[in-house]
Amino acid sequence: MANPWAGEVEVMLDGVPHRAKLTLGALAELEAALGTGSLVELAERFEAGGYSARDVLMLIVAGLRGGGWQGRAEDLGRAEIGGGPVVAARIAAELLARAFTVPEGG
């Protein structure tokens, strides 16, 4: 089970739960994979609802890798994400939010 206090989000891949977390290394990998723009610009796209499917995919890959998953973007592209594209977008947004905010009371 994912621990939101540690910045974790649960992702169901092919019916199996995985923890995802945007660690500093995962964020650096994400920035390199996106190739253009900054993480701030990525967060702004999510806030404005102007994100792409690629943004969602790359965020989830980075988060899963931060949680210890050894897969690649191609692997995630073939996997079934529990809840489909809408839940995938919500997971990506939660990963961003949890990486850059302090939980209440913390």
Rank of each mutant, 00 (worst) to 15 (best):
residue 27 L to I: 14
residue 47 E to Y: 10
residue 66 G to M: 02
residue 50 G to V: 05
residue 6 A to E: 15
residue 56 V to Q: 01
residue 34 L to K: 02
residue 91 I to K: 05
residue 23 T to G: 06
residue 45 R to T: 07
residue 51 Y to R: 09
residue 40 V to D: 12
residue 42 L to A: 11
residue 104 E to I: 08
residue 11 V to D: 03
residue 56 V to G: 01
residue 97 A to K: 13
residue 3 N to G: 01
residue 66 G to A: 07
residue 105 G to Y: 06
residue 91 I to W: 05
residue 101 T to F: 09
residue 88 A to Q: 02
residue 69 W to Y: 05
residue 69 W to P: 00
residue 48 A to C: 00
residue 6 A to R: 14
residue 12 M to P: 03
residue 48 A to P: 00
residue 35 G to F: 04
residue 13 L to F: 03
residue 103 P to I: 01
residue 94 E to A: 15
residue 2 A to Q: 02
residue 63 G to M: 01
residue 33 A to H: 02
residue 20 A to E: 01
residue 89 A to C: 09
residue 70 Q to K: 14
residue 16 V to E: 15
residue 88 A to K: 01
residue 2 A to P: 02
residue 67 G to W: 02
residue 83 G to S: 10
residue 30 L to C: 04
residue 32 A to G: 08
residue 51 Y to Q: 13
residue 7 G to D: 02
residue 58 M to T: 06
residue 92 A to F: 01
residue 104 E to G: 14
residue 90 R to A: 15
residue 22 L to V: 03
residue 99 A to I: 00
residue 45 R to D: 12
residue 105 G to T: 08
residue 46 F to A: 09
residue 86 V to R: 15
residue 39 L to T: 02
residue 82 G to K: 03
residue 70 Q to N: 12
residue 10 E to M: 12
residue 84 G to P: 02
residue 36 T to Q: 15
residue 60 I to R: 04
residue 81 I to Q: 04
residue 78 R to Q: 14
residue 75 D to K: 04
residue 75 D to I: 04
residue 38 S to I: 11
residue 75 D to P: 05
residue 54 R to M: 09
residue 76 L to M: 11
residue 75 D to R: 01
residue 35 G to T: 04
residue 73 A to Y: 05
residue 65 R to V: 07
residue 47 E to Q: 12
residue 95 L to N: 00
residue 21 K to L: 11
